[in-house]
Design a protein around this nucleic acid. Structure first.
Length: 461
DNA sequence: AATTATGATTCACG
DNA sequence: CGTGAATCATAATT
C-alpha cells in the first residue's frame, strides 16, 4: 500500500512533468535511487507505444543495414535447420503412396487419365470404328464410351483446376516467404519444404478426385460393360440358327471351334442390319452349354422344339431336294410320296406344329423316357430320304432319286448330321446316365447305319 | 408380383 | 482348355 501510493505519485509526477528518460540520479539515499529506477522503467513502458512505430522502424532499418546481417541470418537459418524443423523435414516426399499409384494405374488403364482423344463424339466414333469388324455391341459401347469421355472431361477439368490453384497458392506463398525472408531468417530450403507441403496437400485433394473418378468409372463399367447385368436375348433368327444346329446335331451337339465361328458368323449375317448384337464364339459356346444341360435336364420340355426344328430342317431339305430335282431330273415328281406338300413353307410349319402338338399330347406324360417311337412321319420320311433309316413304315421315298437327292441335302443343309437319325426318335447320343460326351462314337443304333451308307457331309463342313 | 426363360459366370473335373 | 453343373441376374411372360 505504502509503496504503491508512492509509486503512483512518482508516476504522475513524472508523467506530468514530461521528463525524458532520466538517468539514475546519483543520490546517496537508496530509497530515492530505487524510486528513480522504477520511474525510468515505467517511463519506458509508457512511452513505448509512442516511440514504437517510428523508432522501431528506424531500428529495424538500422539492423537490416547492418553489415553483419546476412551472416547472422544464415547462422540463424542453420540453427533453425538443426533444431525442430529438420526433424520433420527428414521424411520427405519420395514414398509414392501405393494407393495413389493404384488409382493412377487404373485411371490410365481405363483411358481416363491417358491422352485426351479429341474428346466427345468424335472420339467415340473413332473408337467404335477402330473396334471395326467386331461392331460388337456398338450401341451400348458407344453409350459407354460417351459416358466415359464425359467422366474423363470432368476429371481433366477438375485436375486442371486443382493444378492451377496449387500453382497460384504456391507462388503466393513463395512470394510471401521471400518477402519475409528479408526480415526473418528463412532459408531457401525451408521455402522448398513449404512448397512440398503445399503440393502434398494438393495432391491429397487430387487423390480424392481420382478416387471418386475411379468409383464413377467402376459404376459405369458395372452398368454398361458387365454383360451379365445388361443381358440381351439373342434375336429370333440367331436362336433359330443355333437351334437348327443343335437339333440337327442332337446326337453330338458339340460344335467344333470352326463350327462355332461359322454359327456366330451366320447369326451375324442374319441379324446384321438390325438391333441385335452380333454373337461371338464364346456366346455360341455359352448357348450350347446351356442348351445341352437344359435339354438333358428336361427333355420333355424340349420335345416340341425338337420336333419343330426337325421338321424345319426337313422342310428346308425338302425344298432343296425339290430344287435339286427340278434342276437335275425333270421327269420325276418333285413330291415324293411321303405325304406332305413342300410348296408352302407356312403350311409346312403349321402342319409340323400340329403334329408336334399331337406328339406332345401323346408323350409329354412319359417324362423319363427320351426315346420316342417314330411317329413324326415327316421327319421319318426325310430320314428315309437320307438313308439313315430303312424303316418299313415309311418306305416310299423314291429310290430313283436317291443319290442326287442325298447330294442335294448334303449341300443345301448347312448341317447334315441331323438327318442321320434324330435322337428325338432315337436319342443315341444320350446314354443311360444322360451323358453325351462318351457318345462321340454314336451308339448301336447309328453306327451300323453309318457304315452302310456314309453320307457324311458333316465332315465336309 | 410371381414365375419362367435365358444368357452369363463360377467352379470342379479330367 | 472345354465341359457339366450350379448359380446368378436380368428379360419376358403370366
Amino acid at each position: 500500500m505504502e509503496e504503491q501510493s508512492h509509486l503512483m505519485q512518482t508516476l504522475s509526477g513524472v508523467t506530468l512533468a514530461g521528463h525524458p528518460v532520466a538517468l539514475p540520479v546519483p543520490h546517496d539515499g537508496t530509497d530515492a535511487r530505487n524510486k528513480q529506477d522504477i520511474g525510468d522503467i515505467l517511463h519506458q513502458i509508457m512511452t513505448i507505444t509512442d516511440q514504437s512505430l517510428d523508432e522501431a522502424q528506424a531500428k529495424k532499418h538500422g539492423l537490416n543495414c547492418h553489415r553483419m546481417k546476412p551472416a547472422l541470418f544464415s547462422v540463424l537459418c542453420e540453427i533453425k535447420e538443426k533444431t525442430g524443423l529438420s526433424i520433420r523435414g527428414s521424411q520427405d516426399e519420395d514414398p509414392p503412396d501405393p494407393q495413389l499409384m493404384r488409382l493412377d494405374n487404373m485411371l490410365l488403364a481405363e483411358g481416363v487419365s491417358g491422352p485426351e482423344k479429341g474428346g466427345g463424339a468424335a472420339a467415340v466414333a473413332v473408337a467404335t470404328a477402330a473396334v471395326g469388324v467386331g461392331a460388337d455391341n456398338s450401341i451400348e459401347h458407344s453409350d459407354y464410351r460417351a459416358k466415359l469421355s464425359q467422366i474423363r472431361q470432368i476429371y481433366h477439368t477438375e485436375l486442371e483446376k486443382y493444378e492451377q490453384a496449387c500453382n497460384e497458392f504456391t507462388t503466393h506463398v513463395m512470394n510471401l516467404l521471400r518477402e519475409q525472408s528479408r526480415t526473418r531468417p528463412i532459408s531457401p530450403k525451408e521455402i522448398e519444404r513449404m512448397v512440398n507441403i503445399i503440393h502434398r496437400k494438393f495432391s491429397s485433394i487430387q487423390m480424392q478426385l481420382k478416387q471418386s473418378t475411379c468409383e464413377a468409372v467402376m459404376i459405369l463399367r458395372s452398368r454398361f460393360l458387365d454383360a451379365r447385368r445388361k443381358r440381351r436375348n439373342f434375336s429370333k433368327q440367331a436362336t433359330e440358327i443355333l437351334n437348327e444346329y443343335f437339333y440337327s446335331h442332337l446326337s453330338n451337339p458339340y460344335p467344333s471351334e470352326e463350327a462355332k465361328e461359322e454359327l456366330a458368323k451366320k447369326c451375324a449375317i442374319t441379324v446384321s442390319q438390325g438391333k441385335g448384337s452380333t454373337i461371338t464364339v464364346s456366346q455360341v459356346s455359352n448357348w450350347f452349354g446351356n442348351k445341352r444341360i437344359r435339354y438333358k435336364k428336361n427333355i420333355g420340355k424340349f420335345q416340341e422344339e425338337a420336333n419343330l426344328y426337325a421338321a424345319k430342317t426337313a422342310v428346308t431339305a425338302a425344298q432343296a431336294v425339290a430344287a435339286a430335282v427340278q434342276n437335275s431330273q425333270t421327269n420325276s415328281p418333285a413330291t415324293p410320296s411321303s405325304g406332305f406338300q413342300m410348296k408352302d413353307e407356312d403350311f409346312q410349319l403349321d402342319a409340323a406344329e400340329d403334329k408336334n402338338n399331337l406328339l406332345n399330347n401323346m408323350f409329354t406324360g412319359s417324362s423319363g423316357s427320351y426315346s420316342l417311337p417314330g411317329s413324326g412321319d415327316m421327319f421319318m420320311s426325310m430320314s428315309g430320304l437320307n438313308g439313315s433309316y430303312q424303316p418299313a413304315q415309311v418306305p416310299s421315298t423314291g429310290q430313283t432319286q436317291g443319290d442326287s437327292i442325298r447330294h442335294a441335302i448334303g449341300q443345301s443343309l448347312g448341317y447334315s448330321d441331323g438327318l442321320r437319325g434324330n435322337p428325338l426318335y432315337s436319342p443315341h447320343g444320350l446314354n443311360g446316365n444322360g451323358g453325351w460326351h462318351d457318345a462321340v462314337t454314336p451308339s448301336s443304333v447309328t453306327s451300323p447305319i453309318e457304315g452302310a451308307n456314309s453320307v457324311h457331309s458333316d465332315t465336309s463342313n
